[in-house]
Design a protein around this nucleic acid. Sequence first.
DNA 1: ATCACTCGTTCACTTAAGTTAAGAAATGAA
DNA 2: TTCATTTCTTAACTTAAGTGAACGAGTGAT
Lengths: 191, 191
Amino acid sequence: MQDILFDFISKYIALTEEEKNAIVSLDIFRSVKKGTTLLKKGQRSKDSYFVLKGCIRTFYLIDGEEKTTAFYTEMDALTPHCVINKAPSEYFISCVEDCILSVSNSDMEAEVNGKFPKFEIMCRKLSEELLAKKQIDFDEFRTSSPEQRYLNLLQNRPDLFQRIPQHQIASYLGIKPQSLSRLRARITNKG
Amino acid sequence: MQDILFDFISKYIALTEEEKNAIVSLDIFRSVKKGTTLLKKGQRSKDSYFVLKGCIRTFYLIDGEEKTTAFYTEMDALTPHCVINKAPSEYFISCVEDCILSVSNSDMEAEVNGKFPKFEIMCRKLSEELLAKKQIDFDEFRTSSPEQRYLNLLQNRPDLFQRIPQHQIASYLGIKPQSLSRLRARITNKG
DNA sequence: ATCACTCGTTCACTTAAGTTAAGAAATGAA
DNA sequence: TTCATTTCTTAACTTAAGTGAACGAGTGAT
C-alpha cells in the first residue's frame, strides 16, 4: 500500500532505501471510515493528507447548505488552507468512502525537510505544479457553463460518478441536484 | 518606481544593497502601451511579469469570444502557465492600461537563484502563498452566484470598475455584458 | 467636423437554473 | 425484515442569465 506513496514521490525526487525507511518509521498511514470528518470549520489543524485509497472531499457550510469544492482520490495530496495561513479553517474535510490515508503533520514535515533537503525541493516542485493545475482548472470552470463542466468532468474524472453521491457532484459543478438530474436528462434526450 | 518591486520582495526576504544593485543591473523594467499583447495563444514564452504600474489581463479566445480570467494590477506577479509546463500558451496576455512592468525571464531567474539562494526561498514562499490564495478565490467563485461575485468584486477590488471596460469585467464574472448591466440595475432598484 | 467603431444600456424573447413539492428507489439501522 | 432516512428523479412554477437587436454616448482616425 505504501508503494503508492513512493510511486508518487518518485515523480519528483529519487529516494534511497534509507529515506524510504525513515518515512515508513514515521507511522503516518491511517485507515479512516466513510463519513469521518477529518477537519471542521474553525479548527486549526497542522495535518496534510495524501490519499492512498478512497476519496475525501472539502466543503463549506453556507446557509445550512453543503457546498463541495473538491474531491481528492488515489494519488492526490491535500494541504488544507489553514495549515498554510495558520488560521482557523473555513471549510470541512470528510471521507466520501472508507480511506487509507497518509497523514503528515507540518512539524514532522519540517523535521524531515531538515534531515533530507531533497524533500524541500519536492515541496517546491509540487506546489508550483499544483498552482499551475489549479489555475487551469479555475480558468476552465470560469469559462464553462454547468453543462460543459458536467461533460468535462465526465471526460476527465468519470470514476467520480461511480463513487460520489449526485448531490455532492451537483454542488461541485455549482448547481442544485435537481438541475443536475434535469441536465442529464436533457443531454440523453439530445444524443 | 523600482522601490515598488523592492517593497514587494521585502515581504518575503530581506535584501542587501548589493543584491538590490544586482537586480537593477538586470535591466528588467519595461514601459508598455495600453493594448499591447504580451503573450499570444500558441507561443512558448519564458517571461514572468510583475506589475509596477497599470493593469494587465489574461484571456482565452473561445468561439471567437474573449473570456477574461484574471486582472493583475500594482504589486501583482504573473508567471504564465506556459512558463511552468513549457508548453504553448492556451491564453493571451495583454495590457488594459499603459503599464510599467518588471519582466523576468526564467533563465535569468535561474541565474539569480544560483547567485542568491535567498531568491529560491522567496519563490517557494510566493508560490505557496499564491496557491493558497488561488484556492480560496476558486472556492469563492464556485460557491457564489454571478450577483454575489459582482458584490464581492465591488468589495474587494473596487478599483477595477474604474479602470476596466465593463464587458471584460462581465466576462471575468462569468456572464455577458448585457447581464452585468441588468444585474447592476436590479441591485440599484433594490437598495 | 465627420465617420466608423466600440461600449454600455435597454428591451423582448428564449433558455436554463433555482425553488418547492412529491414520490420512487436505494441504503442503513433496529 | 421493517421502518426511517437519504438519494435521485420528475414536475410546475419562478427567477435569472443568454440572445439578438436597437439606440445613444463616447472614442479615435482621417
